[in-house]
């Protein structure tokens, strides 16, 4: 068997990124070795793209020893779905897309049910369904500790009850780089190889490793409408404009990608990776500022995590 070399002509990573990469690969291999039915949650965004890249590295020259699951709410940006399908084809991945059938039947939308209930039904409940259907005992996710206060206390192996619930008061201590992967039947872990990465690390790594991203991360003239202090993309027919709302064209990009009605764009001129990184290093607001679901109430991420969200 010939071993393919992907790194020809690419400068080596700086020691900082190399250390983060090594740690992530270690976690991938450990989970794959210790659990019977691992799976990777793939959300198409920049963190998922880095996560996938690291997984490919961890198991090279072999293929990924687990499938990918994408929770499709039906309200993702269309460019995300197109990008997803390209990536799956290029790497020959086993991807399972799951949509909550009850939510679909009841026509649950961000507009009809509000962001909190919509997120619970179409994301949290859908995720639990997908994990139950696959009987997965470990699920990789791209969450980072620097994202949000309750995530700062998240473990690399985050234990979940058979109901997928997270109990922050009852977590296993993690010492050194030794991970305890022993669980009772029905229990599972969420494993977070990117725990120690920051947003800047993610972007620097994307740049250094030349990882492809959904074009929405780069500034372009796009149709947007201002709603609740957020710039919402106004390209989907299902977005009904309120009486005083007006669609404008602006140079915008997205710092995170979720469901388009709940993800705010930022005004930006950054059309290249270098410009995005430069913009980021002088940014004074965090990336989750554009996420409506974090703002329902203080502590709402912790609440969602307790209920089974990532």
């Amino acid at each position: 068997m010939n071993v393919i070399e992907h790194g020809r002509g690419k400068p080596p990573l700086d020691p900082h990124l190399k250390a983060l990469e090594n740690e992530a690969i270690h976690i991938f291999r450990e989970v794959a070795a210790e659990f019977e039915r691992p799976v990777m949650l793939y959300s198409i965004g920049k963190d998922s793209s880095v996560l996938l890249h690291l997984a490919l590295k961890a198991f090279h020259p072999g293929k990924l020893p687990f499938p990918l699951v994408h929770i499709d709410t039906g309200w993702k940006f269309p460019e995300m779905i197109a990008f997803r399908d390209q990536v799956v084809a290029r790497h020959g991945l086993d991807l399972i897309a799951h949509t909550n059938p009850e939510g679909l039947r009841d026509n649950v939308t961000p507009f009809s049910h509000g962001s909190a209930r919509y997120t619970d039904i179409m994301k949290t409940q859908a995720l639990k369904q997908a994990l139950d259907i696959g009987r997965y005992d470990a699920a990789f996710g791209g969450a980072r500790r620097d994202e949000e206060a309750s995530r700062a206390k998240e473990r690399i192996y985050s234990f979940r009850t058979p109901d997928h619930a997270w109990d922050p008061r009852n977590q296993r201590p993690e010492l050194w780089s030794i991970h305890n992967g022993m669980i009772h039947p029905g229990e599972s872990v969420r494993a977070f190889p990117l725990s120690n990465w920051t947003e800047v690390d993610i972007w620097r790594y994307i740049q250094a490793e030349r990882i492809e991203l959904v074009p929405l991360y780069f500034a372009e003239r796009r149709k947007v409408v201002e709603r609740d202090g957020m710039l919402i993309l106004a390209e989907d027919k299902r977005l009904e404009l309120l009486p005083d709302e007006q669609v404008r064209e602006e140079m915008v990009r997205f710092r995170t990608l979720g469901c388009f009605p709940l993800t705010g764009a930022v005004r930006s001129q950054a059309t290249t990776l270098d410009e995005v990184i430069e913009e980021l290093e002088i940014a004074t607001v965090s990336e989750r500022q554009g996420r409506a679901i974090d703002r329902d109430q203080s502590g709402s991420m912790e609440k969602k995590k307790r209920e089974g969200y990532f």
Partner: peptide
């Protein structure tokens, strides 16, 4: 063997 290159050395910390 690594994903990037067949390397001629590895040190503590390398996966």
């Amino acid at each position: 063997v690594t994903y990037d290159l067949v390397r001629n050395a590895a040190v503590a910390g390398d996966a």
